[in-house]
Simulated assay, not measured.
Amino acid sequence: MKKVSLLTIAFFCLAIVQGQSFIVGSFNLRYDNPRDSGNLWVNRAPIVASLIRFHDFDVLGTQEGLRNQLDDIKRTLPEYAFFGAGREDGQAKGEHSAIFYKTAKFNLLKSGNFWLSSTPEKPGPGWDARLNRICSWVQLQDKRSKKKFYFFNVHYDHQGVEARRESSLLILKKIKEIAGNDPVVFTGDLNGSHESEWYKSLEGSGWLKDTYKQVAHPYANNGSFNSFGASLQKTEIIDHIFVTAPFKAQKWGVLSDHYHGKFPSDHYPILAVISL
């Protein structure tokens, strides 16, 4: 009886530990562009959904997805829900920075959006940005452990240098304002490598930590942008996953999945295994 009890306790403790580990990621889906001949969304959609399911993301920040793309993923993967608003109107119009999460694993407690501009409470471009840019966030609670954390997801402007610099400063301010001292995961396509000023603002903040730098052996055999195969020689990581304490990463990798010589998106997804 004593042995059985000890084994039961051991398995219970192991289950608790496993419940604190999450597979998180960031994935620029490439918007549904009818000019992407040979890489149309109608052909990529089932591949993207299959990739998400196979790699078993618990929470995934996506960029560029239009509402029809997000609905396609949700329809194929009913085990997930998503939150996010269109950057053009705060409703459904335009690209989203949507967050997918497993409904069997998490309760959604809070959610919101803000724009990367000097007036973050309303739609509009910021600084020298060419386009509206939005950050979406959720507060999730792990159903097993009852632990809570925030997840922020964003897509920085691709042309405005000042906008990218200012976006990082705004992100730091808004995360502290919204999440306070609670644990945070921050994902996104920053359109900037580890050498960019806006990346360094985040990494040098003293409390946001890049999961890439937390692991001993990041799986970075490719850069994170492939341009549907046209930029395979690039090595820069422009998609990122940051965390605050007490999160800690055990694994990090660029997922260079492809199918029949084609690519699910013009970005590779990145994945991190983190523990809380």
Rank of each mutant, 00 (worst) to 15 (best):
S5Y: 15
G19P: 07
I23C: 12
N33M: 14
P34R: 01
R35E: 15
G38R: 11
L40Y: 12
R44V: 05
P46A: 00
I47D: 04
I47L: 10
V48C: 13
S50I: 04
L51E: 11
L51D: 08
H55W: 14
D56G: 03
Q63D: 01
L70D: 07
I73E: 03
I73Y: 03
L77C: 03
P78N: 02
F83W: 13
D89S: 07
D89Q: 06
G90E: 14
Q91H: 13
A92G: 10
K93Y: 03
G94S: 06
E95Y: 11
S97D: 10
S97Q: 05
I99L: 09
F100E: 11
F100W: 13
N107A: 07
N107T: 12
S111Y: 09
S117P: 10
S118L: 09
S118T: 08
T119M: 08
E121P: 01
K122E: 15
P123H: 02
G124M: 01
G126D: 09
W127A: 00
L131Y: 14
L131P: 03
N132D: 06
R133T: 11
D142L: 15
D142W: 13
D142M: 12
K146D: 05
K146V: 00
K147Y: 11
K147L: 11
K148P: 06
K148G: 01
Y150K: 03
F152G: 08
N153Q: 11
H155F: 02
Y156F: 15
Y156V: 11
Q159K: 14
E162F: 06
R164A: 11
R165V: 08
E166C: 06
L169R: 10
L169C: 03
K176T: 09
D182N: 08
D182K: 10
P183Q: 05
P183R: 07
V184H: 08
T187R: 06
D189G: 03
D189V: 01
N191L: 00
N191V: 00
E197F: 11
E197C: 00
K200C: 03
K200R: 06
W207Q: 04
L208R: 12
L208S: 07
K209A: 00
K209M: 14
T211G: 07
Y212F: 15
K213I: 14
N221V: 08
N221C: 02
N222H: 13
S224Q: 00
N226S: 01
F228M: 05
F228H: 02
Q233K: 12
T235G: 00
E236Y: 02
D239L: 04
H240P: 01
F242P: 02
V243Q: 12
K248W: 05
Q250H: 04
Q250M: 03
W252A: 01
W252K: 01
H258A: 12
H258Q: 14
G261D: 09
K262A: 07
S265Q: 12
S265C: 04
D266T: 01
H267M: 08
P269D: 00
P269I: 02
P269E: 00
V273K: 13
I274R: 02
